[in-house]
Nucleic acid binder design. Structure first.
Lengths: 132, 132
DNA sequence: TTAGATGCAAAGGGTTTGCAACGTC
DNA sequence: GACGTTGCAAACCCTTTGCATCTAA
């Protein structure tokens, strides 16, 4: 995606985007980030937001999540962790569940594939939506 | 997606699409299915393929998979099972691994959310790509 | 007969990109 | 001063849709 750049500059835009992602527990869409950044940099463009999200993802600073179809969501916490997706409101929650590293090895042994990591997501209805 | 239809007709197109999905172990994209169906129904339209994939998915006859960004893939096996995605060739493999149903309950207890199911995907390099 | 399904083509909609100006190192 | 980055807007590309026609039940 961004393989040929010699180095990465830390621009004002990039810094603000990363900062926003680091300080939210929601797993926002690019558009949400765009609206948020505009509060600090009113004339920033959507393209810049997308470019930076991709670069930050390549750098391993953030994590891109693709749930269902439609748009991507971005997670400011690049550590591998599990998620719960509410099928009603669409929100994504972090789960406080230990990541099982053993399972990667088992799959490697069974398949002969090289496993880098795994993604585990739970789908259902969050407590807030259940009450309605 | 297709909530207001009173009943579902089994058209020639639908039958062929489902048949193709049931008889492949690859996890094809809509376009791949389209090309395949054209061999039997030359004048079928891409729109029809998409419509049927969505309907079959709603019916629970197939499973839609969204890995990484870009396009969806479809799995003719609607039973919950795990996948391995090769980051090099992009192929998706079924894993012969028992689905852990206990974990859904544990998450329910810890979060208070209602868990319907979970998705588990492994990412890495498949054996064929490793050899290159 | 009738409501669902199809073909065709245009419209959607999130994401990417070309380009000239700009800003960081 | 170089070269990565930005803003803007057009282009992309997978997917969805409107509509007249067709067809399964």
């Amino acid at each position: 995606m961004n393989g040929k750049k010699g180095f990465i500059r830390m621009t004002k835009q990039r810094k603000v985007i990363l900062d926003i992602l680091r300080n939210t527990k929601s797993h926002p869409t690019a558009d949400w980030v765009y609206e948020k950044v505009k509060q600090k940099i009113p004339n920033i463009s959507l393209g810049t937001v997308y470019r930076n999200l991709n670069i930050l993802n390549d750098m391993g600073e953030i994590m891109e999540l693709n749930y269902g179809s439609a748009y991507s969501r971005f997670d400011g916490n690049p550590e591998n962790h599990y998620h719960f997706v509410c099928e009603n409101c669409g929100r994504v929650f972090d789960l406080d569940e230990q990541v099982n590293k053993e399972i990667d090895k088992r799959i490697e042994e069974k398949t002969g594939f090289s496993v880098k990591y795994h993604r585990l997501e739970f789908y259902g209805i969050c407590s807030e939506c259940r009450e309605e």
